[in-house]
Structures are given as structure tokens and as C-alpha cells.
Simulated scan of single mutants.
Amino acid sequence: MGAVKLIINSDISTDYSKDNEKLLKNFGIPFKISNDKLFFISMNEVEFSTSDINGNDFIIDMLSDIPKFYLGGTFSNFNDNVKKALLQVFGEIQLSVNLINSSDGESDWLNLQLNNDLTIEYSLESDEEGYENEDEEEDLQDEYEVAELVSTAEISSEKNTTVTDIDGNSYNLVEIDTQLWISKNLNISKYRNGDEIPQVQDAAEWAVLTTGAWCYYENKEENGITYGKLYNWFAVNDPRGLAPEGFHIPSDEEWNCLTEYLGGENVAGGKMKEKGKVHWAEPNKKANNTTGFTGLPGGYCNYEGTFWCLGEIGRWWSSSDDETEGMSISLNSDNGIALVYYFDKTSGFSVRCLKD
């Protein structure tokens, strides 16, 4: 087999500091400084051949070889010290690499994540249905000539960019295009002015509400630790303010800006969903979380006060509505779609906030 070229071309940035600059220099990690930001420059061409990867299956062995060089560098040591340096400066790093088939132009995705525990996760996913087993991956061994990085997420570490709500809950922030989102579901029990938001656990009472309320999925507090609270639309749009100071609940237009930036509703969902099966049920198709949005399947409470689809569906309110229903966006384990739809305002959905 001839050499195969992997082209990595992207920037990841964080707030500038002398200590971070020194750390990157010590380990030879390429960077630049612009507008009080440190940019990790990952512009590199790496050539693989059968002798480089020591195996017969190009795709699988390419994946297993990735941890041996740091992103944007050369075939130097991707050791624990380099991983720690990258994590200290940039937080968790997530990348998606588009594998371009030189014969027919079709593409697949290589997803790579450097985690806080220094582990590296990677997976291969088809633009169509994904790979169900290794045999399908082996069939691709001679098809790929070029792999090009086409998207990346700027994921800020907690020490650099967080917001705290009135209850003292802290949320990391993630920048996606020009928008700054909280990267987990809201878990607040008070409006911005300090007034309590009622917790309603009775299904019959929930179904007839016309004022703000919240609940945990199946009224179990432990679900709130992972998935946050479920709010009806009336809480979302209460004039006392549900979002932390300086933030707001996204409008229909702002959700649409996000999905359009990600390539449209049909593909945006995969880029917004948390990867893997820790929280999402099978099959969690298309999930690569390249945005850092880390959408979780918190399920929902319907207009009758009945709970549905924990692990399978995540739904988030918009501030927009028509006369009887509120607009929401939905992610599903079965596909990579970000579905925009209107639901009864008494429904209980998750909430994300956007910086003003």
C-alpha cells in the first residue's frame, strides 16, 4: 500500500497567560498569540504507510497510531506530560476529521477527543449509517488517500470560562461560531430576582399549569445531577428571568443560527450530542460533539405530566412561541438531526442559556 496523507488544519484557542505560553513552549507545542488569545496551531501533514503503522488494516491502525503524535506536531512523543500541558491550557479537546474517498468523493468521520483523565477516545463513523463492525472498516483499507480536518470546537476549561447561577451551580461555557453557550443543562430553582420556582410533582397539577414550574425526570433528584431540571415554557418566559445574569433563553432565530452554522438541521444534531453510550441509549447515531455543546438525553415531561424517553431524547426550550405552543429543539439517539418543533407549553423540557 502507498503512503496515506492525513492533513490537520485548525486552531483551538484560550485566554492568554504567560504561564500557558511558557507551558506550550516547554513542550514544543506550536501556538500563536492574537487578540489576547493563545491559539494552538495544528497545521500538519502526516504521511502513513504500511511500514509506519505496522499493520494490514489502514483505517484501524491509523486510529491506533494517532496518540503517538501530538495534534499539529510531528511524530514526537504524545506522552502524559504533553497531554497534561494541552489540557491545562485548552481544556478537553475534541476534533472531527473528514476522511475523503479519493475515488468517489464520499466521506466518513474520524472523531478524536483528549479527555481530562488523559485518555484519548476515537471512533470512525460513516456519513450514511456508521460502521457496525470491523469487517466494514477493513473493506476501506485501500480507499482513502486524504484525511482533512473540517471542524473543531473551542472548549474552554472551567478555570477560564464559567458562569454561576443564583443557586451557586457553575456551568462551563462553549463558544460556537459567534454564540457563547452554557455547556450543560440548567439546574436552577429560583428566578433571577430570588423568587422560588415551584417544584410540581403531581401529574394532574402539572397538566393544568399556566405559570412557571419545574420537576426532575420521574421526580427523582438523582436525575437532576446529570440532566438538570425540566421546566415548563411558562418558567422559561417568566419576566423575573430564568437564565443567570448576562444570559438568556435562546430564541427560535438563535437556535436556527446554531443549526445553520453546523450545516443544517439534518446534520447539526450529531455535532451537538455527547458522544458514546454513557448517557445515550443505542445507537446514538452521528454523535461526535464537535461543537462541545454536549447535548444529553434528559427525556421530557409531556403535557399530561407523564415522563418519556430518558436516554433516548433531549429537548430544549426556545423563548419563541405561537399562540398556544412553545418552540423547542430536539436531539434523538436514532439520528443526527436537530429537530425544531412546537409543543404544548405545559411540557417539561431541558433548558440551555446563551450569553447576551
Rank of each mutant, 00 (worst) to 15 (best):
L87I: 13
W233P: 05
F78G: 13
N256P: 00
E274G: 09
A281W: 04
P297C: 13
L339D: 13
D202W: 07
L209Y: 04
Y171F: 14
A203C: 03
E253Y: 08
S123E: 10
A203V: 02
S103D: 13
N26V: 11
V163G: 01
N79E: 12
N98F: 04
E221R: 06
G130P: 03
T14V: 07
I59F: 02
G194I: 05
A287C: 05
N172R: 15
L242C: 08
T211K: 13
E260I: 08
I155Q: 11
V278T: 14
E138C: 07
K345R: 14
W308Q: 05
G73E: 11
S350P: 01
E282T: 12
L173S: 03
L331Q: 05
K229Y: 13
S328H: 08
F90T: 03
G2M: 15
A268W: 03
N77A: 12
G336W: 03
R192C: 01
N20D: 15
K285F: 13
N335F: 10
N288T: 04
K229I: 07
A287K: 00
A147R: 02
D104C: 12
E282S: 14
C257R: 14
G299P: 01
S156P: 00
I29D: 04
S51Y: 04
D127A: 11
F90G: 01
R315F: 06
L140R: 12
M1K: 09
L331D: 06
K83I: 03
